[in-house]
């Protein structure tokens, strides 16, 4: 049994210690916003926050986060009102959408660490998130916009 707090809710999960956190989130907590894309921390679709810091859930064993607090895309806001989500909507970022939970979680982590990032900061923090639809230009613009919205 592993105890874990996800989006503020503490639960016990009967899963093997070395199962990736991703599959606990998806198959046991039934939160499907966090995506499986590569299984080896290459694409960033599985990005969640561990105590506010970004984490690739697909390569994180459950044992490494036992007793800790995880935030998934579903826990970011109740109504898509987080400034990053607002900026994403304003700039029409998404296409197929599969990578966007991860993009948004990475962007939130970036803005927390660097509230007013430059393009270079965005490149450095967001290059771990692959988007096959190629929404990068809008992601970049939306991170800047989210920085503005956060200041307002």
């Amino acid at each position: 049994m592993v105890s874990l707090t996800i989006n503020g809710k503490t639960q016990q999960f009967d899963v093997p210690d070395d199962m990736p956190l991703l599959w606990l989130i998806r198959d046991f907590a039934h939160l499907t916003g966090t995506k499986f894309g590569c299984g080896m921390a290459q694409c960033g679709a599985c990005t969640v926050h561990l105590d506010g810091s970004p984490l690739r859930a697909c390569v994180t064993p459950v044992s490494a986060v036992a007793g800790k607090s995880i935030t998934t895309i579903e826990g970011l806001s109740a109504d898509a009102s987080h400034p990053v989500q607002q900026a994403w909507a304003e700039l029409d970022v998404v296409q197929c959408g599969y990578c966007q939970s991860g993009q948004i979680m990475s962007a939130v982590a970036l803005l927390k660490a660097k509230p007013d990032p430059s393009d270079a900061d965005i490149d450095a923090a967001m290059s771990g998130n692959i988007c096959r639809c190629g929404t990068y230009q809008r992601v970049r613009a939306a991170v800047h916009r989210a920085a503005e919205l956060s200041k307002a």
Partner: peptide, 21 residues
């Protein structure tokens, strides 16, 4: 015209095949 599928794709609720449970 802005996309109509944005909301569910930014809050994690959009259902892809992978998300069927």
């Amino acid at each position: 015209t802005k996309r109509l599928d944005t909301r569910e794709k930014i809050d994690g609720s959009a259902k892809f095949g992978m998300d069927v449970q």
